[in-house]
Amino acid sequence: MAVSGQRTRFAPDRGLTRRMVTTMFLIGLVYVGFTGLLIALLGRAWPLVVVVSAGLFVAQFWFSDTIAERAMGAREASPEQYPQLHGAIDRLCALADMPKPRVAVAVNDMPNAFATGRKPEKAVVCVTTGLLRRLEPEELEGVLAHELSHVAHRDVAVMTIAGFLAVLAGAITRIGLWGGFRGGGRDQNAAIAALVIPLVSMVVWAIGFLLTRLLSRYRELAADRAAALLTGRPSELASALTKVTGQIARIPSEDLRRAQPYNAFYFAPALSAKEGASQLLSTHPTLEKRLEQLGRISTELGR
């Protein structure tokens, strides 16, 4: 989603951008409607909801990179420790005309990568040791270009804002039930609100969840396309996708379950082959859809 104020050479995809903007608009529309309803129903309790919700959002937005790094066991890696990794990122950043993010490595056999950070200057790109061990240099560059596209287009900030609606819905339900409705037995309006708001919150959570997953899938397709056009080697990215997805399916189920809460960050979701085939609400498009897009790009570049 080309919303970054900083211009890079990553190629935009106007069709995907329109779909992402539309999805973000719908998420915002639901958010505004939900907030208006809460103010109307909560009465004097609404300032508490606003303050607590704003605090949660700021914490989630400001510390998202640190939280993700620590949760996934990433450690910053120096050029002396990983010269080939840093060399690849240096080349891609020069090609894309963007600042170099911090580079981190997670000691993990699951082959994967992720990027996080609320803006390019605060970003980090992390790869696992399992990915470094399994991919050829050209395949690794394709994966890194995909992650750098997320950084350049501020996808982490976009997804944090989009995903916060679901968090807000749950938080407001708890705050409202604890603070605003304790006098529900004496006040008919409070009693009605105590019944209506949890129901509305659940509906809002479901809508926010579905729209955010849709946005995430668009985001992954856009990053694939931008990476393929930047490197000029969509076949190498396709090879990396096929290899990573196949290898992830062989990782023990217990390890995959521990990684699944962070699927939205990953290059490929931590799912078994069976789960991947039945995942209708995935954070990522299917492998087939991603490969089909890369095949079309390869044809375009060959003309």
Rank of each mutant, 00 (worst) to 15 (best):
L281I: 12
L56V: 08
E275F: 06
R213E: 08
A123C: 08
E76D: 06
L26S: 15
L211K: 03
A193M: 07
T22D: 09
L294V: 06
I175W: 08
G185C: 10
L16T: 10
R186H: 14
L144M: 03
S239G: 07
A194E: 09
E254G: 03
E121W: 14
I297E: 01
V32S: 12
A169N: 09
L26H: 04
G33N: 03
L281C: 14
N112P: 12
P101Q: 00
P120M: 06
R91L: 07
G302M: 07
W205L: 07
I172D: 14
V156G: 03
P101L: 05
Q293I: 08
V124D: 04
P252C: 02
L211S: 07
R134T: 06
L140W: 13
E288D: 14
A96G: 05
L42H: 10
Y82V: 09
R250A: 09
S272F: 12
V244C: 14
A162R: 02
Q84W: 10
V204L: 13
F265A: 01
V50H: 05
A226K: 01
P79S: 02
P198N: 05
A94M: 08
R44M: 14
R303I: 10
V107H: 13
P252V: 12
K243M: 11
A2M: 09
Q6V: 15
S253C: 10
L281H: 14
E139V: 07
Q188Y: 12
D155P: 08
G5A: 14
E147Q: 06
R250M: 12
R134F: 13
V196D: 03
P234Q: 05
A123K: 00
S216I: 09
A268L: 07
W205K: 00
P99I: 08
N263P: 07
V52N: 05
Q188I: 13
Q60I: 13
L148K: 07
F209N: 04
P285L: 00
G179I: 13
A240L: 10
L48C: 06
Y218D: 01
L271C: 08
T231K: 00
D97G: 06
S298Y: 05
G15T: 15
L48A: 04
H146W: 08
I27M: 08
V107L: 10
M98N: 02
S53N: 02
G302V: 04
F63C: 00
E275W: 15
L26I: 10
T35G: 09
A68H: 08
V127E: 00
S278I: 13
S53T: 12
R257T: 14
L221Q: 13
P79H: 03
S239F: 14
S253W: 13
R225M: 10
I27C: 08
F164C: 03
R225I: 07
L56Q: 09
F10H: 00
V204Y: 12
K243C: 06
T160F: 14
S78W: 06
D187E: 15
T212A: 14
V49F: 07
L287S: 03
T242K: 02
A227S: 07
V143H: 04
A115T: 11
L144T: 01
Q6I: 15
A169R: 02
R19M: 10
Y262R: 00
